[in-house]
Design a binder for these strands. Structure first.
Lengths: 347, 347
DNA sequence: ATCCTTCGTGTAATCGATTCCACGAGGAGG
DNA sequence: CCTCCTCGTGGAATCGATTACACGAAGGAT
């Protein structure tokens, strides 16, 4: 593969001139520039990004460590991150942690070794030493979706509180009183927050959230199935199951079907994270939709700000409720979110 | 960030010794080795992969240019590719072409500039000059899923012919005679092959595949919707719609629902590419499942063979039919694929 | 005692770019 | 006519690793 030296020889100039011509440096004569361009053309020369990175100490690459690519929510997030990054002249390397801290750590290490310019993380756990060190050492970094409390890194995420309140209002209006949740891992912020938001929203109606109605899941379909079976085996099973992500909702649907239960007649189902498939499941699933594209975009922008040495602010975007049929009576019209209940602060 | 020089200074040895100690070179004394290791520890040193790549001329990175990440089939493929690559000590950089030739070309160029060791491509079109040049120039390369005829590159893919025959047998047994297909882009091999396989299978039953029953899609949900609407507007609409991928099947389902049609009572639906969600759609969708994980694995292995300078053989794995309810009468049992019709060569 | 290996180590070249510094030519100003 | 800038250019250092080559010490064989 042709190097800059070959181009210099072909054009009859020095490598310095070639470099300058190719990088739009002002002080290159028109003749030199055209000869360089011609040489580049005939040799099919492409600059070696590795060598350039070594010299300039920047790779124009962003790392994205994601909890689980197979989750459509994260797939879409990854896609929007790549899109925005490309628009800004960056490439992105995606690392899939599969909800495993060891894999997450592996990817963080690999990305850091490659000297990426910045790191976007949706942490699976409290954060490995390697990640925490990198954050402290000043590696430009932004958390997306999930974050680690107590670490000085901007967070780009969506706030589901309002939407969860709307959901509970919807559920309550439909007459449901015994509501259960399949929670995400307690090590993740989203795992905890969604349970808290649910509990608060229930409290506004004087409804309890007994421990038996909090199932411990891990954001994977299998756990949704297991937890749902546990709920059904209770002396008094819930009337509604709210899954804290779409994969666990899929698992719940599996379990319900296996028991021959009808949704929503026998039991209602709702999910956090909306995906195109929820329109076509039997029945269509009521879900809380995050502004995924906007999250990805905002995260990249914040990270690039950080890389440029500026602040890079945290961003919180609201999620919204999408009512379908899995909780009861079909929505009368393409209606706005049901009127919120009386809002009062946590008791 | 600490460099090898800092480590050498800290350990009181030369950089050569540090490098040797870290790379397991035999002729390093035990004392030198322990001092180096200690220095690495106290400095938190990590070798700079960029510098190493420049010197050794290998990045231990694979490029994967995929047609569309949002398609669950490709997401799974990407995942298995990354898994196998990691097991073999490689990282992978994924480029999402979104079925757009220009984006595909962008990613191929970027990856080549980064001097990846090998390239895995599922081409969106006939191949840009850049890609064809790279192939000719000897860049280790392997096609996955789709390929470009006439280019000397191994292909790892799955053969759907048998499964399509099984599908048509199933459909014929159910009494369906007017079968239509939503095809993929003619520029892709999978786009063409699936139509051919379908036509051949129909021919075995003496059934025609009129042009009106071949809708031109682009592997995206929107086109599935449009083509299906076209089918329904025909004077004699088909009894079965077979979508050549899962996204177009989703679009077809949209269109069917919008018209208030029941599946399979009013019209039957089948899809190429199986995904977990098909179990839970209304009704569950009969689909042709590819051995996606195995494809990803085989592709990486073939590519690594090529990188090592060995041949790297093409691999073709069979797909299989998964019968659900979208074509009529629920399967009686978890039964094996229905007995094949008389096999005869194309008329 | 001398010579030849073997072993451990260091010096320096190298990969392909970018960029500081120096230098010569040519034009403007005195 | 001389001096001083400006402009375009080239030489060479540099980024952080790997590795060919040289070299001195130690040990074995004769």
């Amino acid at each position: 593969m042709a190097s800059i030296k070959d181009v210099a020889a072909e054009a009859g100039v020095s490598v310095a001139t070639v470099s300058r011509a190719l990088n739009g440096h002002p002080s290159v004569s028109a003749t030199a520039r055209t000869r360089v361009l011609a040489a580049v053309e005939t040799l099919g020369y492409r600059p070696n990004a590795v060598a350039r990175s070594l010299r300039t100490d920047q790779t124009r690459t962003l790392g994205l460590v994601i909890s689980d690519v197979m989750n459509p929510y994260f797939t879409e997030l990854a896609r929007s991150v790549e899109e925005e990054a490309r628009a800004l002249g960056y490439s992105v390397i995606i690392g899939n942690a599969d909800e495993r801290p060891d894999l997450q750590d592996h990817h963080v290490t690999t990305l850091l070794d490659r000297r990426i310019d910045g790191l976007l993380v949706s942490p699976t756990d409290g954060g490995s030493p390697r990640m925490l060190d990198a954050a402290r050492a000043g590696t430009p970094m932004v958390f997306v979706d999930r974050w680690i409390p107590g670490v000085d890194v901007p967070v780009v995420r969506s706030d589901g509180r309002g939407a969860v309140r709307d959901l509970v209002a919807h559920l309550h209006g439909l007459g449901h009183r015994r509501l259960a949740i399949i929670a995400g891992p307690a090590a993740t912020t989203t795992g905890r927050e969604r349970v808290d938001a649910f509990r608060e929203a229930l409290a506004a109606y004087g409804l309890p959230l007994p421990d038996a109605y909090i199932g411990q899941g891990d954001f994977q379909a299998g756990s949704g199935r297991r937890v749902t079976e546990g709920f059904l085996d209770l002396p008094e099973p819930p009337e509604v199951v709210f899954a804290a992500d779409n994969l666990m909702a899929l698992g719940a649907l599996d379990a319900l079907r296996a028991r021959g239960l009808r949704v929503p007649e026998d039991i209602a189902l709702a999910a956090f994270d909306d995906i195109p498939w929820f329109v076509h499941t039997d029945p269509p699933v009521t879900a809380i939709a995050q502004p995924t594209r906007d999250l990805g975009r905002a995260a990249v922008r914040a990270l690039v700000e950080r890389i440029a040495g500026r602040t890079g602010e945290s961003v919180t975007l609201p999620a919204r409720l999408v009512v379908r049929r899995s909780c009861g009576e079909p929505p009368s019209a393409p209606h706005p979110p049901s009127p919120s209940p009386v809002r009062r602060s946590t008791p």
